[in-house]
Amino acid sequence: MEPFKVLLFSLAIATCLACTLLLFREYRRRRLRLLLWSALCFVGLTVNNVLLFLDVVVLPDGDLRLPRLVASLGGMLFLLYGFVWEAES
């Protein structure tokens, strides 16, 4: 079970990282702030996934719930800010 879990968590990290990089790349090309806020959201989700990986796989005795939630919430607030102010003119 453990290697499978590692694979799944790594995929989640890789997905978030890919989203972050692709959105930043498009932001640099198009300069649309919606893309910047979305990219920052995925920064938060990437950090969250890395912390989750550490929490569950590497340090099962630790408790990183607080920083994990802070990373997710920070990211999501960027995204919602972007949706509210940039996606609906």
Binding site: L22, R25, E26, L32, E88, S89
Partner: peptide, 19 residues
Amino acid sequence: VYAIADRQKLQAFVDAFKI
């Protein structure tokens, strides 16, 4: 103008994921 701008922003979001 607003409607087209909105659609273009959303399209840009989708385009971002095209490698």
